[in-house]
């Protein structure tokens, strides 16, 4: 019988993953809740676990002139206080869960969990994050939007682990982040938004609008963004309803125990409009 593994080194971990028999556990904050059983009984997992959270090789934050490189087992609280963490990502992490959860949860877990309401994904989409997947066969690097297929679905292979999250350095003249939850802290997102832009001399040079909890996966529509890049902010403002019109078809929220379709949709669009109005 294959049993749970607590490897001491990363190389050992990749070796164990080779046959696709194990499931990686990082902080476990998603997995332990999702698979929980009656108190006192162990959670029920479909596969033996590979405990990766304490692998020293995967706990790092490095930077060079081009990008920031985050080891996949770096906890969110460390990122929250790290001086090199991009400020948008920092802002988002600051509104995720609570300190007790942040000390033991990871970006990688948030990515593979692939919840429509996942918060860090807002920043990862906005910052054009690249995900480094590794197996004994080697590495592949994917942009975040290629990584995620749908709710709970990613392209991660059975023998792979997320090794690193990379984000190219970027700078914006305007950024905005809003998480709307059921309360002001430790809440699951009802609707979330990040906007970032570079406006130079009244001309939009870069524009990125990302929404979460309004569709099966995060919404970032580069074709719509491109329509506005290179245009004068005045023109875009005159035509602001067109932007919201473009997004309306991508924003398809649901009614659930946390909110409803109408609220999510209108709030998402309103947040986008509001952001664009601040670009002046």
């Amino acid at each position: 019988m294959v049993s749970h593994a607590i490897p001491k080194t990363y190389a050992e971990a990749l070796e164990i993953l080779k046959d696709g028999t194990h499931r990686v556990v990082a902080g476990g904050t998603d997995m332990m809740v999702r698979n929980r059983a009656w108190a006192g009984l162990p959670p029920a997992f479909d596969k033996p676990l590979l405990f990766a959270f304490n692998l020293p090789e995967l706990k790092y934050v490095r930077v060079d002139e081009k990008a920031i490189y985050i080891g996949s087992m770096t906890d969110l609280e460390t990122l929250l206080h790290h001086e090199d963490t991009p400020s948008l990502l920092r802002e988002v992490i600051g509104e995720m869960a609570s300190p007790a959860i942040r000390y033991v949860s990871t970006l990688a877990g948030n990515i593979v969990n692939a919840s429509p309401a996942a918060d860090s994904l807002l920043a990862l989409y906005a910052l054009d994050a690249q995900i480094v997947l590794e197996s004994v066969e080697g590495k592949r690097v994917l942009p975040i939007e290629k990584m995620i297929l749908g709710p709970g679905k990613t392209v991660l292979d059975h023998d792979e682990i997320i090794a690193e999250i990379r984000m190219p350095k970027s700078s914006f003249t305007h950024t905005a982040f809003r998480k709307v939850g059921g309360r002001r802290a430790d809440a699951i997102t009802k609707v979330g938004f990040i906007g970032c832009a570079v406006v130079d001399d009244g001309i939009i040079r870069d524009l990125r609008l990302i929404f979460n909890a309004v569709a099966p996966t995060l919404v970032r529509v580069k074709s719509v963004e491109a329509l506005h890049i290179g245009h004068a902010i005045e023109d875009v403002l005159d035509d602001i309803e067109t932007i919201t019109h473009h997004y309306a078809e991508h924003i398809n929220p649901i009614d659930d125990q946390r909110s409803n379709r109408a609220y999510r949709k209108e709030t998402a669009l309103e947040l986008a409009r509001h952001f664009i109005k601040t670009l002046q």
Binding site: H4, V25, G28, M32, V33, P43, N54, I101, V104
Partner: peptide, 12 residues
């Protein structure tokens, strides 16, 4: 650091 032990697997 504070951690919630109810969702912390022993392995970690």
């Amino acid at each position: 650091h504070i951690t919630n032990s109810c969702i912390l697997p022993l392995g970690n």
